[in-house]
Amino acid sequence: MKKSLLQAVTLSSTLLLSSTAFAEVSANIGATSNYLWRGVTQTDGAVAVQGGIDYAHESGFYAGTWASNVDFGDAATYEADFYAGYSGEFGEDFTYDVSYLYYAYPDADSSYDFGEITFLLGWKWLELGYSKVVNADSDVSGADSETDWSYLQANVSFPLTEKVSLGVHYGYSQGDVVKNIFSETYSDYNVSLSADTDVGTVSFMVSNTDLADDDAKVVLGYSYSFDL
C-alpha cells in the first residue's frame, strides 16, 4: 500500500517532548515498474514515481506522508498517505509497531479514502502483522459504516551479503469489503531481492495472488533516502 501535515505533527510533538530529545526528519524518492498494493496493481501495470517525508523521535514516535501516482481507470491520478505510529523493542530480539495510516485520493471522482490500524510484531528475521480498516468512504465499503476489512501478513528477511537481502512475503485479505471489491477473499505473496548501493536501493520482486485470472508480476524498484 507517506508537508503541511507533517510539519503540524512535528510541531505538536516538539511542544510535548523535551527540547534535548533526539529527533530526525528524512525524505525518500523512488520509482517502481509497477505499484503493487497487497499484490494488486495500483497503476494498471505502469510505472510509478513515489516519495515521502518522515519524522522520527527517539521515544519511538514517528509520523510521515507519502505519495504515488495511480491509475484506476477513473479521475484519480495520485494517492497521498498520512500516518503516525509508535515502535520499540522488548525482551531479546523482539520489536513492535502500532500505527494508523490514512489513504487519500484527493482528485478522485469517487469516495474511496480509507484508514486502517496496523499491529506488527517482529523477532529477528520474522515479522507478523494484522491490519484492520477502521474508517472507509462509501465507495470503498458500499455503506458508510462498513469496515469489515482486515489483512494478515507474514514477512521474513535474510541478509545474503553485507548489502544484499532476500525477502519473502505472504498476505491474506479478508472481510465483506474485500468480497465487494474482488468478489472473493484472496492471498498475495512475493519473493524479493534488494541491494544497497552508494546511490540508493535497487530491488527485484516477483509477486502473485490467488485471484482468478491474475498472473505473476515482475517488479523492478529504486529508492533513495536522505536526511533533511
Rank of each mutant, 00 (worst) to 15 (best):
I53C: 06
S223H: 10
S18I: 09
V206K: 10
V202R: 05
G142D: 07
S26N: 11
S183P: 08
D213W: 09
A48I: 08
D107F: 06
E146M: 14
Y100K: 05
N155K: 15
K3S: 12
Y96S: 09
D215E: 14
N28E: 08
V202L: 11
S13C: 10
A31E: 00
S18Y: 09
V134L: 08
S138L: 13
Y170S: 00
G129W: 11
F204G: 11
A75D: 14
L121R: 04
S141Y: 03
G115K: 08
Y130C: 02
T77Y: 02
A23G: 07
G171L: 02
A63L: 03
F158A: 13
T197W: 08
K3Y: 12
D188N: 00
Y151Q: 05
T201V: 13
A108M: 09
N155W: 02
R38P: 01
G73I: 04
G39A: 09
V191E: 00
F114T: 00
S99V: 05
A195C: 11
W125E: 09
D198T: 10
D196L: 15
Y100Q: 02
S183H: 07
E116P: 01
V134Y: 06
V191K: 07
V47Y: 13
T41M: 08
D71L: 11
I181S: 03
S110W: 14
A21Y: 13
A216H: 00
D215K: 14
V140K: 02
L101I: 15
K217S: 01
S13Y: 13
A108C: 15
V156H: 03
F119A: 12
S111Y: 14
G73H: 07
Y151C: 00
V164M: 15
F204P: 06
V199A: 09
S13P: 03
Y112N: 05
L193R: 03
S187V: 07
V25L: 11
Y103D: 00
G91R: 10
G175C: 08
T65Y: 13
S223M: 13
D44T: 07
A104L: 08
Y62H: 06
S165M: 10
L36S: 00
Y102L: 15
W125Q: 10
F226W: 12
A46K: 15
S194I: 06
G91M: 12
D188Y: 07
S68T: 09
K163P: 00
D107Q: 05
F114N: 00
